[in-house]
């Protein structure tokens, strides 16, 4: 894909976000789960962070020497899913990542194809909502390259991720198009280990760890989040966690 087209599509996606935000009042400054009394605080935080991050700064990156000796692996560490175990046994050679929804060119990406796209390596801190933090190096492809390759349509506003272990979550274009938002296939110089989400783990560095989904199975581009799954934007919402986790 040529560079000018790439840039035009990025701009189109950003214009779409701005346009729909303008159409619906301040909706661009409200997270999808806004509603309850507690949601008022969440909405204020989300809106103020959007102002603070308006120039799209990067989360801190470290030297390799800062990589943690033992990066914790929590939640699913070995999916019981039969299909997953079959793909794993084959070294994920048959694994494909579908990119569907509001795209001009639906994709089914192999690991090889992801590796052939422009790579990005970042040593970042994982900030778990529980309170712990650890540093690791992640190598992968910035999500925006994948979205460009799929030719996302101007009306696209959210990118939804479905995972092997049943987790699902979403990002709006503000975070989805950020260069540090990466589909990582490498960790600390090797492949992403199974316990950390092989073959692909999402990295969302400006939000808490639970947004960085493991075992990503498919990517869906959409304009409305309320029609996906239970309509809250993320699986964790029903357990009381906020969709926006830059906190």
């Amino acid at each position: 894909m040529s560079e000018p087209l790439t840039r035009r599509q990025l701009l189109a996606a950003m214009a779409a976000v701005a346009g729909s935000a303008a159409l619906t009042g301040c909706q661009g400054f409200l997270p999808p789960t806004y509603g309850s009394l507690l949601g008022i605080g969440e909405a204020l935080t989300f809106a103020s962070h959007r102002v603070l991050l308006r120039k799209q700064p990067f989360a801190r990156e470290f030297d390799r020497g800062m990589i943690s000796a033992n990066f914790p692996a929590i939640n699913t560490v070995d999916p019981e899913d039969e299909e997953y175990q079959r793909l794993r046994a084959g070294g994920f050679a048959e694994w494909r990542l579908p990119v569907t929804g509001l795209v001009g060119k639906p994709l089914a990406l192999s690991l090889e194809m992801l590796r052939s796209m422009p790579a990005r390596t970042q040593v970042t801190q994982h900030n778990c909502e529980q309170g712990w933090s650890a540093i690791a190096e992640w190598t992968g492809v910035s999500l925006h390259h994948v979205l460009e390759a799929a030719a996302i349509r101007p009306e696209a506003r959210y990118v939804v991720f479905h995972c092997v272990d049943g987790w699902w979550d979403s990002l709006d274009m503000f975070d989805a198009l950020h260069p540090q938002t990466v589909l990582a296939y490498g960790m600390n110089g090797g492949d992403v280990p199974v316990k950390h989400g092989a073959p692909i783990r999402l990295r969302v560095e400006r939000q808490l760890g639970y947004k960085s989904l493991k075992f990503v199975k498919s990517i869906q581009v959409t304009d409305r989040i309320d029609q996906i799954e239970d309509g809250t934007g993320a699986m964790v919402v029903k357990y009381g966690y906020s969709w926006y986790a830059g906190i």
């Binding site: 204020l44 909502e129 906020s242």
Partner: peptide
Amino acid sequence: NLSHTGWGRSLHFLAAW
């Protein structure tokens, strides 16, 4: 105890505002 961070964090931020 992992079961109280959901509402805990939401309340913490509302109260902080």
